[in-house]
Nucleic acid binder design. Structure first.
Length: 351
RNA sequence: AGGGGCAUGGUGCAACGGCAGCACACCGGACUUUGAAUCCGUUGAUCCUGGUUCGAAUCCAAGUGCCCCUG
């Protein structure tokens, strides 16, 4: 009845399947598209492709598969490895959303006549006074707006997120009621391209040159042990240091020049300012500089109150009301006004 | 090769002659569409030999190893 053509990215999981189902029920003309993004040579036919195809079959919607493994490798995986090589902690899901899912994929389906591209992300797009706004999901525990915060309003205009108002159990119930076989499929975890490997195994295989052992030092420069390669550690990390001390040790910093890992106590991790790169403001305009907003420094972080200032360079500084730990270069500082996500910027360093 | 001290899981420390515990580390699980954090849990030890004792990590003796002081 709408006559609108919508493509839904079908991952093979329950979320995207229910997204397609809901849109179909709303009367849209729905087509499923699955991206093959990563399959190691040894992996036989991907289970995800089969599951996605089955979803489309059950929903009786057209379905196609795009083999974008090379594109994914050059756009997302290469960036991931490069950022690790710079001593930072990449967020490949954000990069994938920018370049693949809402970049190249949109262009592709748009060229095929699509009016919208939908996904199973848990976030909401609401009509605001100045246009579409990105809001957190109703179910805050599942909210994924952080991963979408580097996208532009231009993109949000043709994006549909049918699950933003649902809780996960509801989604599974809807899938079960519709008889979808993926209803009970477990949620995906970890990076999609790790596929059973842990990060160390992945890097040993695809970027072994990054795994150079080096010294673990405390704040005074004392040698405490040996690390297995700086990319395996991120700021605030506790596990994997393999050094027994009076109190737990955490990664404070990575010294690329010396290939050294600096560790310290939890209370030494706190900082009250964050320098982040030129931000992406979804509305196109910078927020109110005098106001207190909420910021998140990682997807699963609790929001923290902060005010913003904009430097001449265009970079921003967030001044936190209470110090935060684990402020990590390569991750993103997402800014919220209540439930509304104003935008995001790549974290450069704590101040 | 003078005197003193120490020896307990991987590391650092507890335990009156009476069930060997704690912290850190490791490993596992929960959580999680980034990396983490966090929470829960499991392994795992009395240097060696002999003696005293109903009973020894604990007391005694020798051995071995380490540390400190004095030549």
């Amino acid at each position: 009845m709408h006559n609108k053509l919508i493509y839904v990215g079908l991952s093979g999981g329950v979320d995207s399947a229910v997204s397609a189902l809901l849109l179909k029920q709303q009367g849209y003309q729905v087509r499923g598209i699955h991206l093959r993004l990563w399959e190691p040579e040894t992996e036989p036919g991907s289970e995800d492709v089969i599951k996605a195809a089955r979803v489309a079959e059950q929903l009786q919607i057209p379905f196609e598969v795009m083999d974008w493994r090379e594109k994914f490798r050059s756009e997302v995986v290469e960036t991931y490895i490069q950022v690790l090589g710079r001593g930072q902690t990449p967020n490949p899901c954000i990069h994938c959303n920018q370049t693949i899912k809402w970049g190249a994929l949109w262009e592709q389906v748009h060229a095929s006549g699509a009016d919208y591209l939908a996904s199973g992300h848990y976030a909401r797009l609401l009509a605001g006074q100045q246009g579409v706004e990105l809001h957190k999901a109703i179910n805050l525990a599942k909210d994924q707006s952080y991963f979408l915060a580097m996208l532009t309003r231009q993109t949000f205009r043709h994006m549909l997120l049918p699950l933003g108002g649902f809780a996960k159990p509801q989604v599974r119930a809807i899938a079960a009621e519709a008889g979808l076989e993926v209803a009970s499929r477990k949620d995906s975890e970890d990076l999609c391209f790790l596929k059973g490997l842990d990060q160390e195994g992945f890097l040993r295989r695809y970027a072994p040159h990054l795994l150079q052992p080096g010294p673990i030092l405390d704040g005074s420069g004392n040698l405490l042990g040996e690390h297995r390669g700086l990319p395996l550690y991120t700021i605030g990390q506790r596990k994997g240091i393999c050094v027994a001390a009076e109190a737990p040790l955490y990664v404070m910093a990575k010294d690329l020049a010396a290939n050294a890992l600096r560790v310290g106590r939890a209370d030494e991790l706190a900082h009250s300012k964050i320098l982040a790169g030129r931000p992406n403001w979804i509305s196109g305009k910078a927020p109110d500089l005098g106001k207190i907003y909420q910021v998140k420094i990682r997807a699963a972080a609790l929001p923290a109150s902060a005010s913003l200032q904009i430097l001449a360079s265009g970079d921003i500084i967030a001044s936190l009301e209470k110090p935060l730990r684990d402020i990590t270069a390569g991750q993103y500082l997402a800014v919220y006004d209540g439930d509304c996500c104003l935008g995001s910027a790549a974290i450069i360093e704590p101040r």
